[in-house]
Design a protein around this nucleic acid. Structure first.
Lengths: 228, 228
DNA sequence: CCTACCGATCGGTAGG
DNA sequence: CCTACCGATCGGTAGG
């Protein structure tokens, strides 16, 4: 018995009652609402956090189940495999990141074509990227960056499309900056090196100690771009 | 002074008997030579390659043993645990990297103090770093960069010292470049962002397809530094 | 360094 | 979503 060694966070035994009752743990947001999607998303959120903290291989499906108050086999009711769970985390991360980036650029629509527009767009791209990587609770994209080695071939291919879509927004901005003399290095290498510099911040940035994301964005702009 | 060209660190036992009989696999380089250290180092090299390719958790000690023609339990004759093997890989990587960097800078001794010296030093630091990350067979430091999550607390502390030593060489160069106006961003953020940009190249650089390490170094210099 | 082995853990499943 | 379970794998070890 207690095959789980009860890593349960809060409650005792869950009554073996079907619908009507929920095992326990986090309170339901709404009462009569169909919440299957919520449970599934709770798994996603917990998995993202654990994958980021401990790594994919070092995180067991039991860890994830326990984090949301499920029993060991239950995550497989929502996801057909641990791999599928990882992929779902990454896919959601990319969709969120693309949406955030698109929204950040849309504020510049009116300014497009004006002299300072590419600089402003660049700033918003960088700031949006830092938000995706370092914002509170934003574990999904960091997991994607550091755990894609665990994906299958077709999963990698599928995610590569989203990454291409994400990075595509950078190219015209970089080209404009190159043409105006703000950027000296070749556009392709610039994109790779800049995104690398930003991505690496996951390894060292501490929201508690270090500066704000705006300060970080200022530093990145000053590092990569010339004044003219 | 870092007399660390030949790292020999954690548990070194004295094997009972040399030679006489070899299981099979790779041929011995020299016949009558004491090769205990060689066997140990073969394990290190194979482990570094596998850890880099598959990740630490996804690589079993059996994989490593098979890669050097040993049986499953034999790596534990040379290393007391899988963790110790990982740590030895990282330690050797850092010692090699520090030695390479020191040597790269020494060629500039005569130029120190001259106007263009910091630029030349910066170039050599970047080029040496790319060599450490992307040079053929240089798997040790990439493993350190991407697998340090698997280390224990004291191992992390010990490696942090080597990393600090390595990065210390960059600070005076960056300060000189900042003073001369070649670098606009704050020195601390510049160091973190620049090293991040370089470290990330492990993820995308392909020696077969992409440009040479010299071209890559040119691009990095052009991206980070102003002309003046 | 091999042989033979163990205890623990893990992803996943059948059936309800 | 729980109960009860399985086959596989893994790090590590005793003894030679």
């Amino acid at each position: 018995m207690t095959a789980l060694a009860t890593p349960r966070n809060s409650n005792s035994k869950s009554p073996p009652e079907p619908a009507a009752k929920r095992p326990r743990g986090r309170p339901r947001k709404t009462q009569g609402e169909r919440d299957d999607g919520n449970r599934r998303h709770e798994l996603l959120t917990a998995a993202a956090r654990l994958f980021r903290q401990q790594g994919f291989d070092a995180t067991s499906t039991r860890d994830i189940a326990a984090a949301v108050g499920m029993h060991s086999g239950s995550p497989f009711y929502h996801f057909k495999s641990k791999d599928a769970l990882l992929y779902a985390v990454m896919e959601e991360g990319m969709h969120t990141a693309i949406a955030r980036q698109t929204k950040a650029l849309q504020g510049d629509d009116a300014a497009t074509g004006k002299p300072g527009a590419p600089l402003m767009q660049m700033r918003r791209l960088i700031r949006s990227h830092f938000d995706t990587l370092l914002g509170p609770g934003n574990d999904f994209v960091p997991v994607m960056l550091y755990e894609h080695r665990s994906l299958s071939a077709w999963q990698l291919t599928s995610l590569a499309k989203l990454q291409t879509e994400y990075e595509a927004a950078w190219t015209p901005v970089l080209e404009a900056l190159h043409a105006s003399g703000h950027l000296r290095a070749p556009v392709k290498f610039s994109r790779l090196l800049i995104l690398g510099a930003l991505n690496w911040s996951v390894q060292w940035f501490d929201r508690k100690k270090d500066a704000s994301l705006d300060d970080l964005t200022d530093a990145a702009m000053a590092l990569f771009l010339k004044e003219c």
